[in-house]
Amino acid sequence: MRRLVPVLTVVLAIFAIWYVACVPMNVREVLTQAERAGAEIVPAAAAERRDAGALGLVLRNTAHLGASWSMERAKLPAPHQVAVELWDSTVGEEVYGRRGIVRSGTLSNRSLIYHGGVTLSATLFGFLIGTAAGVLLAIGIVQSRTMEMSVMPWAIVSQTIPIIALAPMIIVVLYSLGLDRFLPEGIAGLLPKAVISAYLSFFPVLVGMVKGLRSPDQMQLDLMQTYNASRGEVMRKLRLPASVPYLFASLKVGIAASLVGAIVGELPVQRGGLGARMLAGTYYGQTTQIWAALIAAALLAALLVFAMGWIERRTLRSMGVQA
């Protein structure tokens, strides 16, 4: 109970700020609409209003702001509008829609469930590639100083390039390779997005794993040496188990980065996914649709991180870590 109050306070504050922000954000359209309906707006001339500040307009027309939270194409839709859109494009579309799963047997390509699924599969695929790459590179780096010097700088450089600039190039290159000719349809479509996703997620895993693999202290390494253990045995029996807590911390960052990568990858591809929904919303001025897709992405990320936390707890408990 004592925790509920602060948690709810934060949630309420966010909603309050959001609702208040809707007023100045949407004031111009709201006033234009009110004027058409016959209200007296100050200043009366549209040209003067264009140059006036949003806050000034709000203060001078307080009586005509009722529509701030119900505009069809609001610059900033109100939370309840987003919630309605979210409901309509998930449950509404699938259960009551003509193309929904209830009537047609397949997910509607207008529903966020379908698009969320597209994004999720690219995210998980990319996360798998990224994690595998991160772990393998980390093992190589810890085993070989040469590898550290030749790989680590590039790994760091790779993260300084904005992914949004790199994503179209990765996609063009991968498509021009003609992967669809020798890969099954599902994988070939997924791969470019997954590669971008992996590109973002391998780095936190790499950094966390290198740290984790180096976490055993000198005494534990000496102990292995007294047994005349080989480097491989030190890796298997000491470094890898010792790195597990570090790995999970990185995996949580990595899976969220994977989701961002998948969404960014969907922007230029436009074959479904939450990213495609967001871009389509931008094209057609459907801000509610953008926000609904954003919220869906945030929920998906929360779900993924939470799932990772659950796996972490299970794994660490089975490794005997004090619960």
Binding site: Q220, L223, Y227, A242, G320
Partner: peptide, 25 residues
Amino acid sequence: GYVFQAAGLYPWRTIGQNIKLPLEI
């Protein structure tokens, strides 16, 4: 056999598994 200042048991292994460590190697 070498005994260090700290016990240095592996926290992810039980006592039995810790003792098995050199035997496995």
